[in-house]
């Protein structure tokens, strides 16, 4: 088993080393083209600098000011809004909700997406039909997803009615209305919409793995489990990386589904930062507090996701 690992990573390693050398060669030969590459990227850099980092900076600046009515007030008040925010019960619930939601959503997307892709990769009759059906929800907007699942997750009807018909009447969850676990139900609705797309990404990744590699593994006597554990899953790391970024993004920005499911929910049980920010800003005209919530979303991305992205990217390239 250990041999397999060495062989595979050895192969990948030998494929990777020429990249390093080519990079150096190109730098020497084509430094003019290297400048050209930068120039081609420059408009995007400027656009991102203004529309993304400029706006982040603007938002952060507002969060330190005293704008709390419809009259803009840019008096600097330091961390006043931030102190208020961290002591706010709704905000504390939001952080808990995002943690649970992220675990549930990312987990479901990766597990369901990978499983279905693997199954569909077994020369299935009617693969096209299954694939179309699986990815269909991705075409449906978040609001519609939320509204539909709000019906499906009614305790007295919807899915519970099906459970009852199947003789499982004892199983009657309250879904998104549950004050403790409601947020997990939200992640089910959201994963319904997104997991099909993840399946498609994994399937494309699987199809990109050369048949020779699988054959070689089979000759080495590797079983199905070993094949996946030591060859396929590591080779799919770049796909997993992309999936993680996409689902992580969704976990931080989740808004539509929560709003349509009746967010913030009893006791803010299914609230999200984006919904909180939107209501705080435009529902209560607390612009500075809303900006602080928006900044928190960005910091979450920067402090939690970026280090992970970087390590993951390094691993992908090794």
């Amino acid at each position: 088993m250990a041999n397999n690992t060495v062989t595979v990573s050895g192969e990948r390693g030998s494929a990777a080393s020429p990249i390093q050398s080519t990079r150096k060669r190109w730098w020497r030969w084509l430094s003019g083209d290297m400048i050209l590459a930068f120039l081609v990227l420059l408009p995007s850099i400027i656009a991102v600098a203004i529309f993304i980092y400029g706006f982040i900076g603007w938002t952060f600046y507002i969060s330190m000011s005293d704008w709390k009515s419809s009259i803009p007030d840019f008096t600097f008040v330091g961390l006043k809004n931030w102190t208020r925010l961290v002591n706010d019960r709704r905000f504390q619930m939001d952080m808990r909700n995002h943690l649970f939601y992220a675990i549930g959503f990312i987990g479901q997307c990766i597990v369901i997406g990978f499983t279905l892709a693997t199954l569909l990769d077994q020369k299935i009759k009617g693969e096209g039909l299954f694939r179309t059906l699986f990815i269909f929800p991705f075409a449906v907007s978040g609001i519609v997803t939320g509204v539909t699942w709000q019906w499906l997750m009614q305790p007295s009807t919807g899915i519970n009615l099906i459970f009852a018909k199947l003789g499982m009447g004892w199983f009657r969850p309250t879904w998104h209305a549950n004050i403790e676990y409601g947020i997990w139900a939200v992640s089910i609705a959201a994963a319904w919409q997104f997991s099909g797309y993840v399946m498609a990404l994994y399937l494309a990744g699987l199809r990109g793995i050369p048949a020779e590699l699988r054959e070689a593994a089979a000759i080495d006597g590797a079983g199905t489990w070993a094949l996946y554990r030591y060859i396929i899953i590591p080779l799919l790391m770049p796909v997993t990386f992309t999936v993680f970024v996409l689902t992580g993004m969704n976990s931080i920005r989740i808004f539509d589904v929560v709003a349509a499911l009746g967010g913030p929910g009893p006791g803010n049980s299914i609230d999200s930062l984006a919904l909180n920010m939107f209501q705080t800003t435009f529902g209560a005209y607390r612009f500075s507090l809303g900006a602080a919530i928006g900044s928190v979303m960005m910091f979450l991305a920067i402090f939690l996701v970026v280090p992970y992205l970087m390590s993951m990217q390094r691993e992908t390239e090794r």
Binding site: K68, S69, R89, R90, I179, P264, G265, P266, G267, N268, S269, Q279, T280, G283, A284, Y285, R286
Partner: peptide, 18 residues
Amino acid sequence: KQSFLLDYDLALNDMVAT
């Protein structure tokens, strides 16, 4: 005003749970 209304709704929203 709007901000009070939001706070009022959220307080009641908490009471449903607590």
